[in-house]
Amino acid sequence: MNSGIVMQAQGLTRYFGSRKVVDQLTMDVPRGSVFAFLGRNGSGKTTTIRMLLGLTEPTRGSSTVLGHDSRHLPPEVIARIGYMSESHSMYEWMTVRQCGAYQARFYPRWNAKVFDSIVGHFHLDLRAKAGDLSRGERAGLSLAMTLAPEPELLILDDPAIGLDPVARRSLLESMIYITRDSDRTIFFSSHLLDDVERVADHIAILDRSVLRVLCSVDSLRSSVRQFTLHYAGPEALPPKLPTLRGLLRVRRSATDLWLTVAAPDDATQRELRLLGAATIEEVPVGLNDAVIGYLGDRGEHGFFLDGIPVPAAARGAA
């Protein structure tokens, strides 16, 4: 695999008014990777993508795409990028066939076979008007229009949003198809962690405008751990936890604490033992747990400021 970098952000920051939407984001996207860009709604994913593509000016910082400054991408570089926005904007009055023919005129490398095969994969009628398509069909047409120019960098902003399971699977299959050429890079945002687990090899997590994870999917999985601390009775539970390095998330029941911890080491183990639990058990973590550990409400910051809100269910059980 080529070891180059296709996209690079350096201290990328954007304010909308006084609100900081993206906060000093620095990252490299390796060539040939399938890169998942995760974060809750409003965490700054779309703004980041728009800054990378030069569609939104950063307040501070800079970025490059395919070696060119995002703010001045030459047309021939833009032609090498396939971008699918959340909205799938297209001319509503054109038929599926006309959309393809129209788009083809802008791209010298347009591959009609790719267009037809994706349109076929999504079972689209070539004579149907774009405006009459369902959400999933629109996504299929949009994908066909994005992939037919054979882009070497594919940027998909939440491509699976609103898709039914069949259309979603077609989307994934199309993404796997793209990786036939190992030099191609896919950068996509998503909320669907099962899909991410299937196709992504790199992962970045934005939490409230700040990049908190940037690594391979495997290293995320192996560095996040969960521990169950079991206590003799409700009175034995510490009302408030002391500082614990790397603590991501805490949940509690009447007699248990469940801690999600990033990269625990021997010192963490010692700290855990000081919490006075009768037993401490490490439980295996799936990708979902690891990601939710970073995105959940009771992250490190929220916890220290607010203490641990006891869930209603646990209160009932106590």
């Binding site: 399938v34 699977r169 299959e173 796997i176 990786t179 992504a200 090899d201």
Partner: peptide
């Protein structure tokens, strides 16, 4: 590798 990746709908690198 390709065949299994496409059959299982997963990243071929895996």
């Amino acid at each position: 590798v390709r065949g299994l990746a496409e059959q299982l709908v997963i990243n071929p690198n895996t």
